[in-house]
Amino acid sequence: MAARSSPAVSRPSSRKPPGRSSVGGVTRLVTAGGETSGAVVEGLGITALRIGPEIAPGVPAVAAEGRDLVLALKSGNFGDEDFFAKALATLAGRT
């Protein structure tokens, strides 16, 4: 009797983002949209954030613990027309 092969099993990747470095050389990241921001944090494997200065009411700058990465995670209608310029300046430490 011939042996039957089992179907391929898909397993989650065991790769983890680098622990203390930036991601692909990126050290500042601004996202817009609550779902997008959540997906970015999850996709990068970020488990803890340190709250930083306020960029706009309800939107602080945050730093990924253990990494050289700061983020602005904007959701919904937060921020004015110049939010992205303010966010990049804040993340660069120029505010």
Rank of each mutant, 00 (worst) to 15 (best):
M1H: 14
M1S: 15
A2W: 11
A3I: 11
A3P: 08
R4L: 13
R4H: 13
S5C: 09
A8I: 12
A8E: 12
V9A: 14
V9Q: 12
S10L: 15
S10V: 15
R11G: 03
R11E: 09
R11T: 10
R11N: 05
P12T: 07
S13Y: 02
S13K: 02
S13P: 00
R15M: 04
P17W: 01
P17G: 09
P18T: 00
P18D: 10
P18L: 06
G19P: 13
R20C: 09
S21P: 01
S22Q: 05
S22R: 09
V23C: 10
V23P: 06
V23Y: 11
G24L: 08
G24I: 08
G25H: 05
G25P: 03
G25F: 03
V26W: 06
T27E: 11
T27N: 07
R28N: 02
R28W: 06
L29I: 07
V30D: 05
V30C: 06
V30N: 04
T31N: 01
A32G: 10
G33K: 06
G33R: 04
G34Y: 02
E35T: 14
E35C: 09
S37R: 01
G38H: 11
G38A: 13
A39C: 06
A39Q: 12
A39L: 14
V40G: 02
V40L: 12
V41H: 01
V41W: 01
E42F: 10
E42P: 01
L44G: 02
L44A: 00
I46R: 00
T47A: 10
T47E: 11
T47Y: 00
T47V: 11
A48R: 12
R50V: 15
I51S: 08
I51H: 09
G52E: 10
G52Q: 08
G52W: 05
P53A: 12
P53W: 02
P53H: 11
E54M: 14
E54R: 12
A56E: 15
P57A: 01
P57V: 07
P57Q: 07
P57M: 05
G58R: 04
V59K: 04
V59E: 07
P60L: 08
P60E: 07
A61M: 11
A61Q: 03
A64Y: 00
A64S: 00
E65G: 00
E65D: 13
R67T: 03
R67C: 04
D68A: 14
L69T: 01
L69I: 03
L69A: 08
L69W: 02
V70C: 11
V70F: 05
L71G: 01
A72F: 02
A72C: 12
L73W: 02
L73P: 00
L73R: 04
K74I: 06
K74C: 14
S75V: 05
S75H: 08
G76D: 06
G76L: 04
G76I: 10
N77D: 09
G79K: 05
D80F: 05
D80V: 10
D80W: 07
D80N: 15
D82E: 12
D82R: 14
D82S: 13
D82F: 09
F83P: 01
F84E: 08
F84Q: 00
F84S: 08
A85S: 13
K86P: 06
K86L: 14
K86E: 10
A87D: 04
L88H: 07
L88P: 03
T90C: 15
T90G: 07
L91A: 03
G93D: 06
G93K: 04
R94C: 07
T95K: 13
T95M: 13
T95G: 15
